[in-house]
């Protein structure tokens, strides 16, 4: 069954379709949150994101564009969480994910601790934590969540050109990190 059909059924009030939609997208949503935050907070923020998704679902007018819509909401949940964290810690104003420092979103221990740090894809994933948030975000959306460049632009509320330049910079930074590690080894 296609995502669009599931979304339409869920919008009609079919509870089982909604449950299947959650089951199908739970891991992608969690993966995005996990790449932006550490493991301790990923589950809670993903749950908050799901609550926001379910509350907004009746108002979704383009069910065929579910994925970018979904990640827009998840991104907002992550930004809200980080904004609250910043506010309680430093009273600094954070308007968007672009304003954040990498160390505030994903700590090294989150990716390297022996229990929680069982990483899924290539070794490169371990270096995501070192990337600046805007670059890390488009990298996760484009390569881990398989969103198109246009959908990434929509989710991040920036132009396609900006997404392309961030992807380019992210790839370059990642390559540099991997080369550094290779040279050390």
């Amino acid at each position: 069954m296609s995502d669009e059909l599931l979304v339409v059924r869920a919008q009609l009030g079919d509870r089982s379709a909604l449950e299947e939609l959650v089951a199908r997208w739970q891991t992608p949503v969690w993966t995005y949150v996990r790449r932006m935050l550490d493991a301790q907070r990923a589950d809670d923020v993903a749950q908050d994101a799901w609550l926001a998704i379910v509350r907004a679902l009746p108002r979704l007018r383009e069910p065929e564009r579910f994925a970018p819509w979904l990640f827009t909401i998840v991104r907002r949940a992550v930004a809200n969480h980080l904004r609250d964290r910043y506010a309680s810690r430093t009273h600094q104003t954070v308007r968007d994910l672009d304003d954040l420092d990498p160390s505030d979103t994903l700590s090294d221990t989150a990716l390297h601790d022996p229990i929680g740090g069982l990483l899924d894809r290539a070794e490169a994933v371990a270096h995501l934590a070192d990337l600046p948030v805007p670059e890390r975000e488009v990298l996760v959306l484009h390569y881990l969540e398989d969103l198109s460049v246009a959908d990434c632009a929509r989710v991040c509320d920036v132009s396609v050109g900006t997404v392309k330049s961030r992807l380019h910079r992210a790839r370059r930074l990642l390559r540099e990190r991997l080369e550094e590690k290779g040279m050390e080894a």
């Binding site: 089951a23 739970q26 493991a39 993903a46 749950q47 929680g116 740090g117």
Partner: peptide
């Protein structure tokens, strides 16, 4: 490498939306 997975299963996520 083992894939890292959500700590909360899908049915639990749905239950919390109840």
């Amino acid at each position: 490498m083992t894939q890292e997975m959500p700590g909360v299963p899908a049915h639990e996520v749905v239950a919390r939306l109840g």
